[in-house]
Nucleic acid binder design. Structure first.
Lengths: 109, 109
DNA sequence: TCATTACCTAGCCACATGGCTAACCAACTC
DNA sequence: GAGTTGGTTAGCCATGTGGCTAGGTAATGA
């Protein structure tokens, strides 16, 4: 039953991984370039890339001895949709409460 | 530097906690009612509520011997905005690539 | 006032996560 | 063909997470 949202959100719950996504949103890049700004050993960094890839947020392919990483937008959209639905539900409820309050105000018992 | 998004996304990375949010989007509820559908000891469940509260996704207040839990929409919106920005960046880039491709097609060297 | 209800605290456990080093391989470059 | 570059694999470690039981406490109802 563990929804794919599990791994999507878990993948985004880490600042290193969000930074990678932010970088990749501006275009694909090889691992070495993605790694450069992060003060962390390469193997540790590769684990993050692995999580992103396992969550389907990212794709990668080997070109010669370098590995190019691309973002995958569909899961971002799915997560965004879930969040939006919850918010819409909640805000819809607030609207209805407000209507109720106004109705009660117009017609006090 | 650990952004608040850290705890927001981490809080949403668990199906139990997302189910709680989905329930609360339809209105506030006491802990016992939130707990009922989940096959899990109460203390375990309370830890989930604690995480949601620590992440600011939820507020709660004690009324007599029961605790009422409410959703807090602002963080949902913040996370949604972040996701939307990344996607917009990415899709904007795709648009520009497409324009470039079309431009090249119109005027082949 | 006594029992029940609704939650809270403490403490334990297994496993996942996020970091590291060391050692390796495979592709370029000179 | 020897060295350098860019990843990769293996394995270790500390801490965090998500579950549990046992045993509170405080409000409520009979």
């Amino acid at each position: 039953m563990a929804n794919q949202l599990d791994s999507f959100f878990a993948a985004l719950a880490d600042p290193t991984r969000r930074a990678v996504i932010e970088r990749l949103a501006r275009g694909a890049a090889p691992v070495s370039e993605l790694h450069a700004p992060h003060d962390m050993a390469l193997p540790s960094f590769l684990k993050h890339i692995g999580k992103l890839e396992a969550a389907g947020l990212v794709r990668s392919e080997k070109k010669g001895r370098t590995r190019i990483v691309h973002i995958e937008a569909a899961p971002l959209k799915e997560a965004e949709t879930w969040l939006h639905q919850q918010r819409a539900l909640w805000e819809g409820r607030l609207d209805r409460l407000q209507s109720l309050a106004e109705a009660l105000e117009r017609k006090p018992s």
